[in-house]
Design a protein around this nucleic acid. Structure first.
Length: 239
DNA sequence: GCATTAACACGTA
DNA sequence: TACGTGTTAATGC
């Protein structure tokens, strides 16, 4: 059942604390019984930098969510060049598409920094789909939002201006529906953002100062504050 | 020209 | 102390 979790993570799996449960956005949508059963099925674990939560080809057994920290979704880096598809900040849940199809994971998920991750076993996930309209709506909204993000990401990838790419990637990470745990302050280092966008830390630093000068964000130690999310999405360059 | 790596100083948690 | 940021110099496409 828990085969998809690396052994080291499985050994560390524990019961979620009340504060961690508060960081799970869909729990509040459930009625009493559903909520109790979901909480009983949920497990959390702490992952260190570089640790993998999903590996391509492993059977999908959990629906995962980020309680705290930062993950990245990437392809198989052994065959060719590594491609990062997206970063996943706090409040983000992923893997539902694979669970729905009862297939194997199609991507790797790796922690970029020390992270706390929650997992709902596949049986509990399908039980909620069978029982709760609100939960179905949550999953539907999430799939829809993410489809929009990936369409936008295709466009972003063709833009070569690094400042614009940083702006678009940041806007994605601040998506209020997909990543409700982020709010207006995202804990991310310039190095981590470089990994996600595919730029050097120095170039990210330069881009962030451009965005800061445009009044879209504020650079803070160890993270960023968004002042104008729509402006970040629409940003087309400093000139 | 522009981005990257390497290296260093400095400030913060 | 360890880590994150700001900056410069050298290198490569």
């Amino acid at each position: 059942m828990a085969d998809a979790l690396p052994l080291t993570l499985r050994q560390r799996a524990r019961r979620p604390t009340p504060a961690e449960l508060d960081a799970i956005p869909w729990l509040a949508l459930l009625d009493g019984n559903q909520r109790e059963r979901a909480i009983a099925a949920l497990a959390v674990a702490d992952a260190g930098p570089g640790e993998r939560l999903c590996r391509i080809g492993r059977p999908a057994t959990f629906w995962f969510g980020v309680v705290d920290g930062l993950l990245k979704m990437n392809n198989d880096d052994s065959t060719g060049q590594a491609v990062t598809f997206t970063g996943i900040p706090p409040g983000g849940w992923f893997g539902e598409g694979t669970l729905l199809k009862r297939e194997s994971y199609l991507y790797n998920i790796q922690a970029l920094r020390p992270s706390t991750v929650a997992g709902l076993p596949i049986d509990g996930f399908h039980a909620l789909l069978d029982d709760s309209i609100a939960f179905n709506r949550f999953v539907l909204n999430q799939l829809n939002a993410r489809l929009g993000q990936f369409i936008a990401a295709r466009e972003t990838d063709r833009i070569h201006d690094p400042d614009v790419r940083v702006a678009r990637n940041l806007a994605a990470l601040f998506h209020p529906l997909l990543y409700p745990g982020v709010g207006s302050w995202l804990r991310i280092t310039q190095q981590e953002l470089g990994y996600l966008v595919g730029l050097s830390r120095q170039r990210v630093n330069q881009a962030l100062h451009g965005l800061s000068g445009a009044g879209l964000i504020r650079i803070e130690y160890g993270g960023l504050r968004v002042l104008d999310l729509d402006g970040l999405r629409r940003f087309t360059g400093c000139r």
